[in-house]
Amino acid sequence: MTLSIAGKTAIVTGSAKGIGLAIARHFVALGANVMFADIDEARLEAELGDEAESEGSLRYFAGDLSQKLTAANLLSATIDAFDRIDILVNANRDFALTDPLNPDDGAFEMLVRQNLMCAVRLSQLVARRMITQAEREGQDQGQIGSIINVSTLASRLAHPELLGVSISNAALEQATRSLAVAYAPHRIRVNGVAFASVLSASLQAALRENGDWRGRIIDATPLGRIAAPSEIAEAALYLASDASGFVTGQILTLDGGRSLIDPAGVPAY
């Protein structure tokens, strides 16, 4: 088996910055055609600029993927650009503190919509396209697609102020397992990458607001450091490639050993 994804087509959501951007950039560097997708059109334009040429290996799509029509348009734009879809990385994530005693706090519903429903709905659309694509091409053996969901260690830890983040990420991991079983007969693999202690865009913002968090996170991580987004990109590459051809329904955890000691009260992203 090989880690190569050259010539394959991927959609990477949440790819205007941070982990999503690192994954999308890594895939392009390895010869894949990639549709960068994010709600932040200005940041996509600033990041990609003239790279998104009509004959190039990357494009970008801006829109709110919590809207069903937008998700369908993203898939259509990808097919128009590259004529196929082989890999979906749901790296679209949102972060907000939630008040567990406030039933009118709209952050909870927003986080479930952005962190869970966007991924599930887009996975359904993409899986159906992968199936019809394989039928059209007469591909009756081997895997026909890989779906990767990006979550965080917050899915397994209980921080009251991160109620919405924790629940939406935990639900996404369960959706990963459920969709893996549902799509296995169609030869589509579904896996996840869960991370903590990664210098993502959201963690960088949080560190600016909370000066003591960096030391607390490092002290709570056995490997004693905060990881780079590129390390998540390498894990996504493994799950996207044929090297993981017998892996489905798994959540690959990249946390520097942090979940082994389960430190209470330390922020998880």
Score class of each variant (00 low, 15 high):
131 I>C: 00
162 L>D: 05
124 Q>P: 04
154 A>H: 11
159 H>P: 01
137 E>C: 01
159 H>M: 09
113 R>F: 01
169 N>Y: 07
125 L>E: 13
127 A>W: 01
157 L>G: 09
132 T>V: 04
122 L>E: 05
125 L>Q: 14
169 N>G: 09
159 H>Y: 05
153 L>N: 09
130 M>Y: 03
101 L>C: 13
145 G>P: 07
105 D>W: 02
136 R>G: 11
166 S>C: 13
128 R>W: 04
145 G>A: 11
122 L>K: 02
102 N>T: 10
112 V>P: 06
103 P>K: 11
114 Q>E: 12
126 V>S: 00
130 M>T: 02
104 D>V: 03
121 R>F: 07
110 M>W: 09
160 P>I: 04
107 A>I: 04
132 T>H: 00
139 Q>C: 06
152 T>G: 14
134 A>E: 01
127 A>F: 00
140 D>W: 12
102 N>Q: 06
134 A>S: 08
158 A>F: 10
121 R>T: 05
158 A>I: 14
104 D>M: 08
120 V>W: 12
140 D>F: 12
169 N>M: 07
121 R>W: 08
141 Q>K: 15
146 S>G: 05
159 H>A: 05
119 A>F: 04
103 P>W: 10
150 V>H: 13
111 L>Q: 03
123 S>F: 04
151 S>K: 05
113 R>G: 08
170 A>D: 04
129 R>H: 13
150 V>R: 08
111 L>W: 02
155 S>R: 06
105 D>M: 05
139 Q>I: 09
118 C>M: 08
106 G>R: 15
116 L>Q: 14
106 G>P: 15
155 S>P: 02
166 S>Y: 12
169 N>E: 09
170 A>W: 03
112 V>W: 06
167 I>C: 06
146 S>L: 00
103 P>A: 11
163 L>Q: 11
135 E>P: 04
148 I>Q: 04
157 L>M: 14
170 A>F: 06
168 S>N: 02
128 R>Y: 01
135 E>D: 14
123 S>T: 13
98 T>L: 00
156 R>G: 06
98 T>H: 03
144 I>Q: 02
136 R>N: 10
161 E>A: 15
153 L>W: 06
130 M>N: 02
105 D>T: 05
138 G>T: 02
101 L>I: 12
149 N>F: 07
136 R>P: 01
111 L>E: 02
107 A>G: 08
165 V>P: 03
144 I>P: 01
154 A>E: 09
132 T>D: 02
109 E>R: 14
156 R>S: 10
158 A>P: 06
144 I>R: 04
143 Q>F: 10
122 L>H: 08
127 A>H: 00
113 R>M: 06
165 V>S: 13
105 D>Y: 04
161 E>Y: 15
161 E>P: 10
110 M>L: 12
169 N>S: 11
130 M>K: 04
112 V>M: 12
155 S>L: 01
144 I>H: 02
135 E>R: 11
149 N>C: 06
116 L>I: 12
164 G>T: 00
160 P>R: 11
103 P>Q: 09
118 C>N: 13
161 E>W: 12
100 P>F: 10
162 L>F: 08
150 V>P: 07
